[in-house]
Computed example of a mutant assay.
Amino acid sequence: MRWIDYFYSEEGSKLFFMGVKDLSYIEKPDGTLEYTEAYQQDPSKFVSWAGGYYPAMLTANTFKGGEATPESMEAAAKVEAQWPEEVWPAFTYTQEELGRFTPLHTDINKYVDEMTAKFIFGDIPFSEWDKYVSTIEKMGLDQYLEIYKAAYERYKN
C-alpha cells in the first residue's frame, strides 16, 4: 500500500510519468516540467507508465499525454461548468436486485445505444422521440430506476 500511496503523491507522480529529475526531465523556475532530449530519444529508459494499468494520479504538470496538451486543457476549461458535482462508482446490488436489474440494464442500454445512433444519423426523425421514450418505459424503466435508486441510497449511506 505504501508503494501505491507513493505514486499518488506529487513526488511519485513525477517519478512515474516524468522519470528522474535532471536526467529525463527538468523543472523550470515556474514549476512546469519538461522532458529532456535524452527522454525524447528513448522514453522507455526512464518511465514505467507506457502501457498497462498503474496506480497514479494524473495532473497536467506531470502527465504529458494528449489529455494535457494546451488544446485539450483549453477544451476542458470550456466545459468545466457542465462537469458533474459528484462522480459515482459502480453501485452494488443485492442478489435479488441483480436478477431483475441485469436483464433490464442490458436491454435498455442496448436499445438506447441503437436509437442514439439512429437519431444522430437521421435514420429515425426526432418526431419519433415520444415513441422512443414510451418504448423505454414499456421495457421496465420504472423498475430499473427503482433498483438503481436503492443501490444509490445504499452508496450514500
Rank of each mutant, 00 (worst) to 15 (best):
L33H: 05
F46L: 11
K45L: 11
P55E: 15
P70Q: 04
L33M: 14
K45Y: 13
G66D: 00
T59R: 07
T62Q: 01
Y39G: 00
G66W: 08
T59A: 08
P43G: 06
T59P: 06
F63V: 12
A56P: 03
V47G: 10
G52D: 08
Q40Y: 07
Y53V: 00
A50F: 15
P55F: 12
G66C: 14
Y39L: 06
L58V: 10
S44C: 10
Y39C: 03
D42E: 10
E34Y: 14
W49P: 00
S48I: 14
K64C: 08
A68K: 11
V47M: 04
P43D: 06
M73F: 09
E67I: 08
P55L: 15
S48E: 12
L33V: 02
W49C: 00
K64G: 13
Y35D: 14
Y35E: 15
G65Y: 00
T36R: 04
Q40K: 09
N61K: 07
L58C: 07
E74Q: 03
Y39P: 02
P43V: 05
M73N: 15
S72E: 15
G51P: 05
P55G: 14
Q41I: 02
Q41K: 09
A56E: 07
T69D: 03
S72K: 04
Q40L: 12
V47T: 10
N61H: 13
L33S: 09
Q40E: 13
V47R: 12
T32E: 02
P55N: 11
A68E: 01
G66S: 15
S44R: 13
A68I: 01
A50H: 14
Y35K: 03
A56C: 05
A75R: 04
Y53E: 04
K64F: 14
Q41H: 06
G52W: 10
T59K: 06
T62L: 01
T62S: 07
M57F: 15
A60P: 12
Q40I: 03
P70M: 06
M73W: 00
S48N: 14
E74L: 07
L58S: 14
K64E: 09
Y39F: 09
T36C: 05
Y39M: 04
A38L: 15
Q40A: 05
P43M: 02
W49D: 00
T62W: 01
D42K: 05
G52K: 10
T59E: 06
E37T: 13
T69L: 09
A50C: 09
G66K: 08
Q41V: 02
G65S: 01
T59W: 02
G52L: 13
G51V: 12
A75F: 05
L58K: 12
A50K: 15
Q40F: 10
T62E: 08
G65R: 00
S72F: 03
A60R: 14
Y35M: 11
S72G: 11
E37F: 07
M57W: 05
F46N: 09
V47L: 02
T69H: 05
E34I: 06
A75E: 07
A56K: 01
E71N: 06
D42W: 00
A50Q: 11
L58W: 11
F63A: 12
Q41N: 11
W49G: 00
F46G: 09
D42Q: 11
F46I: 15
P70V: 03
L58F: 07
S48Q: 13
A60L: 11
E67R: 14
A75M: 09
